[in-house]
């Protein structure tokens, strides 16, 4: 199947490009992204990757900070090195909290992508960008960068 150009008609219409912060673990998803690079696999340019050694390092505070600072979506890419399953519980609980706070499920995603799965990465990123684009910008009422301006004293 030939590579499709990644401009969706809707994006051109609305002009909205989602900003997605991605946390990739060094040994798996980050390597998969590198592999996508060396294979010249093209995907949507909306993600900004922050590298951690393991997806376990991704503190729920980071996810919340990303949303508070203006991210429209947050993606965590990890793997299962043996016993690291506590991420799943964290993710599911955090998702419920985000849901109650009015942040739709599609904006927060956890993908298990191992180092050889460059194609899978592309599919996941493109899919997420499309889904978040359809939801529109998150536009939280109170953005974190305005916190310091609040105090009028």
């Amino acid at each position: 199947m030939p590579e499709k150009e990644l401009e969706s008609p809707r994006a051109v219409q609305n002009g909205f490009e989602p900003k997605i912060v991605a946390f990739f673990c060094n040994w798996c998803t980050y390597l998969a992204a590198d592999l996508a690079g060396t294979s010249r696999i093209k995907y949507a340019p909306n993600i900004r990757v922050i590298r951690t050694m393991c997806s376990g390092r991704v503190d729920p505070q980071f996810v919340l900070e990303a949303f508070a600072r203006g991210a429209d979506g947050v993606l965590i890419g990890g793997c299962h090195p043996g016993d690291c399953h506590y991420q799943e519980g964290n993710y599911k609980t955090l998702r419920r909290v985000l849901g109650e706070m009015g942040i739709e499920d599609e904006r927060f995603r956890l993908e298990w992508i191992s180092a050889s799965e460059a194609e899978r990465l592309k599919v996941a990123v493109n899919d997420m960008v499309e889904k978040v684009r359809a939801l529109g910008p998150l536009r939280l009422e109170i953005k974190a960068e305005h916190f310091p301006e609040e105090v009028a004293a």
Binding site: V21, D59, R69
Partner: peptide, 14 residues
Amino acid sequence: FEDEEILEEIQGVL
């Protein structure tokens, strides 16, 4: 990989 370092990175990309 201190919290502060990663938080600055998050703020930086956004």
